[in-house]
Amino acid sequence: MANLSVNLAGVELKNPIIPASGTFGYGREYAELYDLNILGSFSWKGTTGAARLGNPQPRIAETAGGMLNAVGLQNPGIDAVIAREVPHIAEIFQGPVIANVGGFSLDEYAENCAKLNDVDQVAILEVNISCPNVHAGGKNFGCDPHAAAEVTRAVKAVTNKPVFMKLTPNVTDIAEIARACEDAGADGLCLINTLLGMRIDLNTKRPVIANRTGGLSGPAVFPVALRMVWDVYEAVKIPIIGCGGVSSAEDAAEMMLAGAAAVEVGAANLVDPMACKTIIEHLPAVCQRLGVDHISELTGGAHHG
C-alpha cells in the first residue's frame, strides 16, 4: 500500500486530506460520526479577535454543482476558542491542527496568532486574508500584494509556527499575490477561498442571500482552483495546500498533480459528512492506479515531463 504521508513546511501529516475551514466547525459535529484521527489535519472555523455574529439570514443559496455562503465569519472569538474548543479538540483529535485565523487589521492578525503560540496542538497557522463576505472597513487584504505581504510579515513577527497564507481567487493575478506572500516570509500557501457570486430569487426578484453576494464553493469551482494551484506552483517554491471543489480521491490527486502538497475539502463535507473519510479510504487505490509508492510524488507531477 502506498505511503500517504505528506510534509507541510516541516509538519508531518499522515495523509494529505484536510477538512477546510468553515465546513468543519471545531470538529465536534463530525466527531459524532467518525474518528477524526484518520484525518491528516483539520482547519478550524475562521477565528477572529472578538466574537462575531455573522450576517443576517438567508446566508446560503444553492447553485448547479455548488453553493454560495455568506456566513460572515460567525465565530466565538479567539479567547473563547482557546478556552472552550481547544481542550475539546484535544479529546477528539490528537494530530496536528491548522488554526484558521481572520482579522480586520494587521494588529488583530498578529494578536490572534500570538495567542496561539502556547497552544501546542496548533501546528500550522492558516491566515485568511480572503474572506469576501465581511464589510469591515471595506478592506480585503488578499486583493493587494502589498497588503498581503504586510499581513504575512505581521504574523511571522509574532510566531514560530509555520504560517500559511490563504489566498482569495477574486484577483486578476493570484501568482502575484502568492509571490508577495512568499517574499514576505510565508512558509506556505492555501488556495483557493470562495469565489464571489450571487443568485436572484425569481419570486421576490431580490438576491437570495441577505448580504446580496456570497462565496461560491463546491465542485463548480474545482477547475478554477486547479488552474490557480497550477499557476501558483509555477510562481513559488513554498508548499501549497490545494482547496476548492474537491469531492473525491481522484480530485485530490489532480490537485496534487497541479502542485498541491496537501488538499483541503470544504463544501463536500456539508453534503456528505463522511466525504473526507471516503476520500482517504480511496487514496491508496488512486496511488496504485497512478503508479506511485509515496503519494507526495504526485505533487507538481503534471508540470514535469
Binding site: 466547525g25 465536534r28 438567508p58 446566508r59 446560503i60 455562503n69 456566513v71 460567525q74 456539508l270 459528512p273
Partner: peptide
C-alpha cells in the same frame, strides 16, 4: 432556515 449542512457545522442557519 436555508441550510448548508443541517448538522451544525457551517453556521449557515444561525439566527439571533
Amino acid at each position: 432556515a436555508r441550510m448548508g449542512c443541517g448538522f451544525g457545522a457551517c453556521m449557515g442557519c444561525s439566527i439571533p
